[in-house]
């Protein structure tokens, strides 16, 4: 990759020639605010938060779509730039519900973060506001399009990554909204509920139903783990509060780039299904009776020893599990083999 020399905020940098100004800045640890940029999606240049001053340019170009060029001189936080960003934030504020106190997104909302950063105290613009009905018809997430800032990441994620293409822009200008074809309920659209739109929404327009009102971002522990469903091996962070899972964040930095499907994203609530087995059970006269661990394990050990003694070790067989961990599979086959049999298999064939 050929390199070019550029200067950002007085810092001389040598960067890949195919980078954008935003990427170059990020590579140097310079944070340029953006709502609509996502590294794996088509560059939209829609929100205009990332405008910067480039020497010689008439306007303020968007850093996310402007390629670097040899000798380019960029300033990312001049007064003119900050003024433009503040104006953009104020414009968004003018048509954004101000229910931050109870908004589920509080604490992880980019609109909040940037409004704080650019000292937005309110909006000087009063006028028409959108009044789109709140949508809670699908089981997985809420759609509050009045909070939507039309960055379009959800649309691009849906088309470019998932391929479902369930949502797109409807109407134009001030009347623009992101919705399904013919504005049908989302569960009647081609949506497959991967939730990737929810996870990249920078504001509170798309929020998961799971974990509602159960914890602010700063109150939850985030535990990195691996999905229990198919073999793709997606990883994500479980949000835990008070010994309950209250949400998840994809592992955007991981090998699966934070992509998920409906099962991994929303299908973890079986964990606290009320019919979880909680005690050992021994069948007596055709009925299961609660037992202590000691009773149950003693019984098993006795039976296995009896069968082994009477019919030989190969009269014992075990099915291990593709759902359990490596460590557990290892111990399972170790146990069976220690008993003297290789009768161990699992459902790889199914």
């Amino acid at each position: 990759m050929s390199k070019v020399n550029i200067t950002i905020n007085g810092l001389a940098l040598q960067v890949d020639a195919n980078m954008t100004v935003l990427e170059a800045a990020q590579s140097a640890g310079i944070d340029i605010p953006t709502f609509c940029h996502d590294p794996e999606l088509t560059k939209a240049g829609a929100c205009r938060m990332c405008v910067v001053e480039v020497a010689g340019a008439r306007n303020l170009p968007a850093a996310c779509t402007t390629p670097v060029a040899e000798g380019m001189v960029v300033e990312t936080e001049t007064e003119r730039v900050q003024k433009a960003r503040k104006t953009i934030l104020e414009l968004i504020w003018a048509d954004h519900p101000h229910d931050c106190l109870t908004c589920e997104k509080t604490g992880s909302c980019k609109l909040q973060d940037y409004s704080y950063r650019y000292d937005v105290k309110g909006s000087p613009y009063q006028g028409e506001v959108r009044e789109i009905p709140f949508d809670d018809t699908n089981p997985f997430f809420f759609r509050d399009l009045n909070k939507c800032i039309l960055c379009g990441k959800c649309v691009r994620k849906c088309h470019e990554i998932n391929g479902a293409g369930a949502i797109d822009f409807m109407n134009r200008g001030f009347g623009t909204k992101v919705t399904t074809a013919f504005d049908d309920p989302i569960e009647e659209s081609s949506c497959v509920f991967c939730g990737m739109c929810v996870d990249i929404c920078p504001v509170g327009a798309l929020t998961p139903k799971q974990g509602l009102n159960q914890g602010r971002p700063w109150e939850v522990d985030k535990v990195l783990t691996t999905c229990p469903y198919c073999g793709s091996g997606c990883t994500f962070y479980l949000h835990v509060r008070n010994d309950k899972i209250v949400g998840i964040t994809p592992n955007f930095a991981g090998p699966m780039k934070g992509h998920l499907c409906v099962k991994g994203r929303f299908g973890w609530d079986f964990v606290d299904s009320p019919d979880r087995l909680q005690t050992p059970l021994i069948k007596k006269d055709g009925e299961f009776v609660e037992a202590t661990w000691d009773e149950a394990l003693e019984l098993i050990a006795t039976k296995f020893k009896e069968v082994g003694a009477q019919y030989g070790a190969d009269a014992i067989a075990g099915l291990s599990s593709a759902r359990t961990t490596n460590e557990e599979n290892y111990l399972f086959q170790k146990l069976l083999r220690s008993l003297g049999t290789n009768n161990v298999d699992h459902c790889a064939r199914l």
């Binding site: 691996t226 999905c227 229990p228 469903y229 198919c230 073999g231 793709s232 091996g233 291990s320 599990s321 593709a322 759902r323 359990t324 961990t325 490596n326 599979n329 290892y330 399972f332 086959q333 083999r337 290789n342 009768n343 161990v344 298999d345 699992h346 459902c347 790889a348």
Partner: peptide, 20 residues
């Protein structure tokens, strides 16, 4: 493509009748 989260691991761990 393996269908379950840890089929590959179960095989790797010798949860099979012919291999350790």
């Amino acid at each position: 493509l393996r269908g379950q989260n840890n089929v590959q691991g179960a095989c790797d761990m010798g949860a099979l009748p012919n291999v350790l």
